[in-house]
Amino acid sequence: MITDEQLDEYRINSTKLRVVRDALETNDVKGIVVAWDEESVMIRKQNRRIVKLDRSYIYQPADEERALIF
C-alpha cells in the first residue's frame, strides 16, 4: 500500500501517476493525485474526471516502465 508521504510528494509535485490495477495495461488509470484517505485515493484524469481508487493498487510515476504484477 502506498504511504501518505509518497502521496503527498506526488500531489505537491503534480506528478502524473500510473495506477496498475490488474495485468491488462488498458485498465491502467493515469492522472494526478487530488486527495486520499485511509482506504482510497482520488486521481484526476486528463479529461478532468475524478476517479476514486483503492490504496492497495500499485501507484508509480507514469514515465517509469509499467510494473509487472502477474
Results as ranks from 00 to 15, higher is better:
Y59N: 01
S40W: 02
I12Y: 07
V41E: 00
E38L: 08
I2D: 02
K52Q: 14
Q60A: 15
K30P: 15
S40L: 03
A23I: 14
I2L: 05
K52A: 11
F70A: 05
R18E: 12
I32G: 06
M42V: 09
E39H: 02
D28I: 12
Q46H: 13
D54G: 10
K16H: 12
T3G: 04
E9F: 02
F70E: 10
I43W: 05
L24A: 14
E65T: 06
A23H: 10
P61L: 11
V20C: 08
T15F: 03
D37S: 00
L17R: 08
R44G: 09
P61K: 14
E38G: 08
Y59W: 04
N27M: 03
L24W: 14
Y57V: 01
K30T: 13
K52V: 05
I69K: 07
R18S: 09
S14L: 13
L7A: 01
V41N: 00
K52H: 07
V51K: 12
I12W: 12
V29R: 02
D63I: 10
V33M: 00
E5C: 01
R48G: 04
D22Q: 04
E39S: 06
V51C: 09
D54E: 08
T26R: 12
A23M: 13
D4C: 01
L24C: 14
D37R: 00
D8R: 06
T3P: 07
L7I: 03
V19S: 04
K30I: 12
